[in-house]
């Protein structure tokens, strides 16, 4: 199976430790992972801000770069959602039937990380070790756009040493919402404050999610409060083992 990593532009630029963890994890599970360097961005930030026309070349490029792979793994619920739920519509809107067909052929092979592990590789226990108190926030697009369900939690429950605690009102949006965080900062922060409060109520030291953008928002609030909670992507928890445990130094 030819597996490609779509790192996503945000992770590639701002949180490289996440796609690195995906590579570590998938190789440990016996996959050969490719990183096609021509990849850029799924276009979500353009599409969701109303710049559909600007997204179309990115849809085309996504198909060109990933079309030949058996599986594309994405460490982001919302970028997976952008590809699977929006790319075909963008191609249709642009009147490009060939592109629409190409998108529809490719999207069933595009998987968010937890989907790939559970559904494609068929593993729940990935051999991880993470001796920390953790709470998990199911990001909205993971939950309600691509419907990953409890896959991330099943993966986390199988991690050795983990102290996994339930997050109150977990399914409520954190208030990030892409450009919403900038266009409506007051409401965004009001929502984020409640999410941060719930995180603190769990007394977890690590807040885990499948989207670094949501984590940057809640994590940014927790950091401002000096709350002593580390936001961390699911991939980095799952990549951690007894022999190579997670270290914060690896983050930067």
């Amino acid at each position: 199976m030819r597996v490609a990593l779509f790192a996503t532009c945000f992770n590639d630029t701002m949180w490289p430790s996440t796609p690195r963890a995906v590579v570590t994890l998938l190789e440990r599970l016996g996959c050969r992972v490719d990183f096609p360097r021509a990849q850029t961005c799924c276009g979500q930030m353009f599409t969701n801000t109303g710049y559909a026309a600007e997204s179309v070349p990115l849809v085309r490029s996504f198909v060109d770069v990933f079309g030949e792979f058996d599986a594309v793994v994405v460490p982001s619920g919302s970028c997976t959602g952008s590809v699977r739920e929006q790319h075909a519509g963008l191609a249709r809107r642009a009147g490009d039937q060939g592109l629409e067909r190409a998108v529809e052929q490719l999207t069933p092979r595009v998987h968010e990380l937890s989907e790939f592990l559970v559904d494609v590789l068929g593993v729940v226990d990935v051999g991880a070790y993470f001796p920390h108190r953790v709470t998990y926030h199911p990001t909205c697009h993971s939950l309600r756009m691509i419907r990953v369900g409890d896959r991330p939690l099943r993966l986390l429950r199988a991690v050795r040493g983990i102290d996994l605690v339930e997050l109150p009102s977990a399914e409520e949006c954190c208030g990030f919402g892409g450009t919403f965080a900038m266009k409506n900062p007051d409401v965004s922060v009001a929502m984020g404050s409640d999410k941060a409060r719930h995180v603190r109520e769990t007394r977890a030291e690590v807040l885990v999610a499948g989207d670094n953008s949501c984590l940057a928002h809640v994590g940014g609030l927790l950091s401002r409060q000096r709350a002593g909670v580390r936001p961390l992507h699911l991939a980095e928890v799952l990549a951690s083992t007894e022999n190579a445990p997670f270290t914060p130094e690896g983050v930067r």
């Binding site: 949180w15 490289p16 430790s17 994590g219």
Partner: peptide, 19 residues
């Protein structure tokens, strides 16, 4: 608009494709 209430992550010294 972001940093008024939220800290922002500093960019890494090496991005993923460089790594």
């Amino acid at each position: 608009a972001w940093s008024e209430a939220r800290d922002a992550p500093a960019p890494p010294t090496e991005n993923f494709r460089q790594w």
